[in-house]
């Protein structure tokens, strides 16, 4: 059991399908993605806007609503052993694992808390059905948990607008972690925060994850955050995973040209060498380029890249990348 990953994603495909004015359109936002998340690790997911990061985690969390459709593949959680994929599990079983085993730290803490309810009421709404017990015992659990996140228990009687952005984000982290879930999905939880607050919040996610031994799927486009926080890193480009491996290895030796660009274009204090942007623009997922989706912007593009989709190949222990330049022997 312990050797089994907590989440196994295999060939997952989820597309947006819609018909606009009689023309059907398919946006392949998640296209054939496979990776594992082990217990007690932070798996980072990087990629720019419209690369399909948020669609991927929604699909993994089983939150599929039209026009999004599951096209193929599976996402299996270790705590749902009877279902080969979360999408086939009984709705009651999925409802039972939510918050208790699988929780979600959402993007934009400003918008997820009900502005008309005090924080304490929000805690009761979300967590009381899962934790059970008397009101007094629940109160004590919540207070102890808030202290762990260095929040004063007085926030329970506050409304969301009375708290600062950093405090609200800590409240959403407290909400997501109160039931000690085994798996936490975090979607850009620090993007709207200032650098000092961001560092604080990241440190908190890290320490609470270590304390509870949970796994975290952490989505952000900020490579600096990945470098500091995550154990493993998956890089997405245009709906596909292009590179995955231990964060340390990926940063030390990125193999896909897109990953290499993301890492090398980061400006650093103390380094004045010229950085550049990539030419071209991210592709339209309704009509992606044939072959490797990165080829129109790739400095290494060859003839084969324009026609054949590169497969994921092993480039090191636990490190995979999909690029024809690697299989050709170059780098």
């Amino acid at each position: 059991m312990s050797s089994q990953p907590i989440l196994r994603v295999e060939n997952l495909k989820a597309h947006f399908r819609g018909t606009y004015f009689g023309v059907s359109r398919e946006v392949r936002a998640v296209d054939d993605i496979s990776f594992d998340v082990e217990r007690n690790e932070i798996f980072g997911l990087a990629g720019e806007s419209s690369s399909g990061k948020t669609t991927l985690i929604k699909t993994i969390a089983g939150l599929i609503r039209p026009p999004l459709e599951l096209v193929g593949g599976r996402a299996q959680f270790a705590f749902l052993p009877d279902a080969p994929t979360i999408h086939q599990a009984a709705p009651a079983a999925v409802a039972a694992i939510r918050w208790r085993h699988l929780s979600y730290i959402m993007q934009g803490s400003m918008n997820v808390l009900n502005p008309l309810r005090r924080i304490g009421a929000t805690f009761r709404d979300f967590a009381l059905p899962h934790l059970g017990g008397s009101a007094g015992a629940f109160e004590a659990t919540v207070t102890a948990h808030l202290e762990r996140l260095r929040l004063d228990p007085s926030v329970l009687s506050a409304y969301p607008h009375e708290l600062s952005g950093g405090m609200r984000q800590r409240v959403t982290i407290a909400l997501a972690t109160i039931c000690k879930p085994e798996f936490i999905i975090a979607d850009e939880p620090t993007t709207a925060l200032d650098v000092i607050v961001q560092k604080d919040v990241l440190g908190m996610i890290r320490s609470i994850q270590r304390e509870m031994g949970s796994s975290v799927l952490f989505v952000t486009h900020d490579m600096g955050v990945h470098a500091t926080l995550t154990d493993k890193l998956g890089v997405m480009y245009a709906g596909r995973l292009v590179e995955v491996g231990a964060t340390r290895d990926v940063f030390a030796a990125p193999r896909h040209p897109y990953t290499r660009h993301l890492i090398h274009s980061l400006p650093r204090i103390g380094d004045v060498t010229q950085r550049s942007g990539l030419p071209g623009t991210p592709p339209n997922l309704a009509n992606p380029p044939p072959g490797c989706r990165f080829h129109p912007r790739c400095p290494l593009a060859m003839d084969i890249c324009r026609t054949v989709q590169p497969a994921m190949i092993d480039v090191g222990p636990g490190h995979r990348a999909s690029c024809h330049a690697i299989s050709e022997g170059g780098s």
Binding site: V195, I196, Q198, R206, G224, A227, T228, L229, I263, R268
Partner: peptide
């Protein structure tokens, strides 16, 4: 100094951000 220390970069380590 606090701002400078909060900048995350590929060379920062996990320990530096843990409160």
């Amino acid at each position: 100094q606090q701002l400078r220390a909060a900048v995350l970069s590929p060379s920062a380590t996990l320990e530096t951000i843990t409160p």
